[in-house]
Design a binder for these strands. Structure first.
Length: 481
RNA sequence: CGGGGCGUAGCGCAGCCUGGUAGCGCACCACCUUUGGGAGGUGGCGGUCGUGGGUUCAAAUCCCACCGCCCCGACCA
């Protein structure tokens, strides 16, 4: 936490502030920082730009990993692991790649107390090392396509870090593939974009995204084309949530990644690479969070239901434990909160901060009536439910909450995405959301001067353009994280 | 790197201008009363005042240098 900054708790000495967090409308970035801190997601590490991910934040990441990993494997990829350290010479082989990454590289010059003969780079991404091994392993078209994925950390030196959104070290998944034809590589790249990333974001994170192609200015260094999933955050700004790149034969050429084709000729492999990172946690926070804290969609929530024993009287403690057990038996991710030495209100607020989708309150009054109280985190409504019907009701409410959060996010995206016909209108529209316009009219220099950028390019029908496609395209512009 | 701000207890801050016993709120510990939307009382623990130097009988306070952090601008998942 920074010095010279105040949480709302500091404004009135001796008194609790009215609200737990700075309201979003008052100061969105501050709201974000406070949620991350108070929901115990993460904090800054000792080295600038590094991040300590706390158990609750990491639990969310683990849920994301589990869902993504299943989809990645279903797409045909296998997991592997490549080293953190990469010879600097590898990076230098692909001219555009080094040029793009050199400003943000961490370079190791000493090891074992001696200066190294060749500097070692801490991986900013692994195309180069992985290609060094692809070239060794790959022999025949019969081995294609070859799809590998790795879960790891990477380092890109950042000047202005923000927890989860932009840190010097972050966790991610990077997929790397080799294909026999350009068409097959393209199909894979888009399959990952839509059927792994977009589907995960919509179904699990309940965040609708726009998919499109990056402009040359924003594409991956060394790629022929980059495709992106762009989400709209609560303040109308865009967040790049995932990217899938078509590498062509660029890396294959410099690393000699070749195979023998059906005609018996040696040919360079056609490649893709793709990744999503812990930035997704930031996306989750900003896509659904409200003035009371996080709102985590049930599908991704590490805790879907918290059962609160209001106090340990009238059998409430036992009843709460029993409810929690029943929910767990039905496969619900549930946590029992029986800390009755802490006040009820405090505990409610803490669980709201953490965004647990559904809260079950069990107190003496509920027990006497044979009921429990269910409180939804998404809309704040409460209802009493007979204990016998509780598990069923909880499960149906979780489903409602999941779809409700998606609908809400979709309405925001739809209502704040407007079609415009000039740079001036685009800048105006970007103050509250996205603008869509003819790409030919989108003067990037003029937009950038106003703090706005082209997030992605799409066709008139909304589908993603081919790598070389340039005419009749629409540009989606907005402010970006 | 350019501009602005800030370093005092775990967190948020006051004290500095006008040198002289280091304070407040929250958190934490103990006990009692509490518990259906941030509980109250009483007692307690906790600080090399960012670092180094200088001025002075005396420095959190004045002077110099350095370091760090935060915010705003040029790059990125």
């Amino acid at each position: 936490m920074g010095r010279g900054r105040r949480g709302p708790a500091a404004t009135v000495p001796g008194k609790m502030p009215k609200s737990v967090l700075t309201p979003q409308a008052e100061d969105y970035p501050r709201w974000y920082q406070e949620v991350v801190a108070k929901a115990e997601m993460a904090e800054n590490g000792p080295v600038r730009g590094t991040m300590v991910v706390r158990p609750y934040g990491y639990a969310i990441w683990e849920r994301m990993q589990a869902e993504l990993d299943a989809r990645i494997k279903a797409a045909g990829a296998r997991n592997a692991y490549f080293p953190l350290f990469i010879p600097e010479s590898y990076l230098k082989r692909e001219a555009e790649h080094v040029e793009g990454f050199s400003p943000e590289l961490a370079v190791v010059t000493h090891g074992g107390g001696k200066e190294l003969e060749e500097p070692i780079v801490v991986r900013p991404t692994s195309e180069t090392v992985i290609n060094a091994y692809f070239s060794k392993w790959l022999q025949s078209y019969r081995e294609l396509p070859l799809l590998l994925n790795q879960w790891c950390n990477v380092v890109r030196w950042e000047l202005r870090p923000r927890l989860f959104l932009r840190t010097t070290e972050f966790l991610w998944q990077e997929g790397h593939t080799c294909h026999a034809t350009s068409e097959d590589a393209r199909a894979c790249c888009l399959h990952i974009l839509h059927d792994v990333y977009e589907s995960f974001m919509v179904e699990q994170l309940a965040v609708p995204v726009l998919t499109g192609r990056k402009t040359d200015a924003e594409k991956f260094a060394g790629a022929d084309a980059s495709y992106t999933c762009e989400g709209m955050m609560g303040d109308g700004k865009a967040l790049q949530m995932g990217t899938s790149h078509l590498l062509g034969q660029n890396f294959a050429r410099v690393f000699d990644t070749m195979f023998l084709n059906e005609e018996g000729e040696r040919e360079y492999a056609w490649q893709t690479s793709w990744g999503v990172s812990t930035r997704l946690v930031g996306a989750l926070i900003m896509a659904h969070g409200d003035d009371s804290g996080l709102r985590v969609p049930p599908n991704i929530a590490p805790v879907q239901v918290v059962v609160l024993a209001v106090r340990d009287e009238g059998g409430a403690g036992e009843a709460a434990a029993s409810v929690a057990r029943q929910l767990a038996d039905r496969g619900v991710r549930v946590e029992l909160d029986s800390r009755t030495d802490t006040s009820f209100g405090r505990r409610v607020i803490d669980w709201e901060l953490k965004g647990v989708p559904l809260r079950v309150e069990v107190g003496p009054r509920d027990v006497a009536a044979g009921e429990a109280t269910l409180a939804r985190r998404d809309d704040g409504t409460k209802q009493s439910v007979p204990l016998a019907a509780l598990v069923e009701r909880a499960q149906s409410l979780l489903a409602d909450i999941q779809s409700g959060l998606l609908d809400e996010a979709r309405r925001r995206l739809d209502s704040r995405l407007v079609d415009v016909s000039s740079v001036e209108e685009a800048i105006e529209a970007s103050q509250s959301g996205f603008a869509r316009m003819e790409w030919d009219d989108a003067d990037e220099a003029a937009l950038n001067a106003a703090g706005v950028s082209v997030r992605c390019l799409v066709r008139a029908d909304g589908t993603v353009p081919d790598p070389e496609e340039r005419s009749e395209l629409r540009a989606v512009v907005g402010r970006a994280y």
